[in-house]
Design a binder for these strands. Structure first.
Lengths: 122, 122
DNA sequence: ATTGACCCTGACATTAGTGTCATACTTTAC
DNA sequence: GTAAAGTATGACACTAATGTCAGGGTCAAT
């Protein structure tokens, strides 16, 4: 597919897609006319990139993750990916803690709400 | 405490702390000499800010969360926080999916590793 | 009292992702 | 075949967090 379709399917701007390619996060072949030609697999890949960007990773870090997932898998690589995986797990734990906090806040607010409605109803 | 100590306790630069204050994420009183005076509670608050920044939120979004946690709690507020909470939960779910992916990658790599060592040992 | 550490404000620089514009070629549609 | 839409490259702008520097106070220790 061409870059416009990839853009439509992912919501990423054409500009961003070119940037991702320039950063080595996605790749394409070139048609005779010079247009980029992307494989279908790039759709999921771009979505992954978007997710990680939203989690505060930069393109270099995302490239590391992608290389772990799709790259050559030798011994050094493995060690590195292990490390990456652990960092990622830490991040998940942090976010879970914050979720717990928000849950408590939510409950407190709901109590207040109930209180308010009881008084209002009188 | 003064800004330097808050910086030491949190790891945030003095520059960043002033920025957070300017954005309304933290607050301080002023001493007679013009120095900022922070309460102890700000330490935890700054750590929360750092966490959220690391998760890809900007200061405006973080302010919303902080206002939910510590602000006046009326009806509208509640509705808004509910929404926020849901967004947050979605983010957690996404990250959990990615963790699952990484787990699978890890396992595949470990298999490769084992294979390699078996051949090497011969 | 002077030095060094800390603080103030304000301004400019930097980084990374993205937007936008200019210029030019290709393709599609009428 | 001409217009409109799509694509290419390259350059510049913007945003947000943070770094850094300038110029100037405050305070504690020697």
């Amino acid at each position: 597919m061409r870059i416009g379709e990839l853009s439509r399917l992912t919501g990423a701007s054409v500009r961003s897609l070119r940037h991702y390619e320039q950063k080595g996060l996605i790749f394409s072949e070139r048609q005779e006319n010079g247009y980029r030609s992307f494989e279908n697999a790039m759709v999921q890949r771009v979505k992954t990139i978007q997710l990680f960007l939203g989690l505060g990773l930069n393109t270099d870090q995302i490239k590391e993750i992608i290389d772990c997932k799709y790259g050559n898998q030798n011994a050094e690589h493995n060690e590195f990916c292990e490390e990456l995986y652990q960092k990622y797990e830490e991040k998940r734990n942090e976010i879970n803690v914050q979720i717990q906090h928000l849950k408590q806040v939510k409950e407190r607010l709901e109590e207040k709400m109930n209180e308010f409605h009881r008084h209002e109803g009188k």
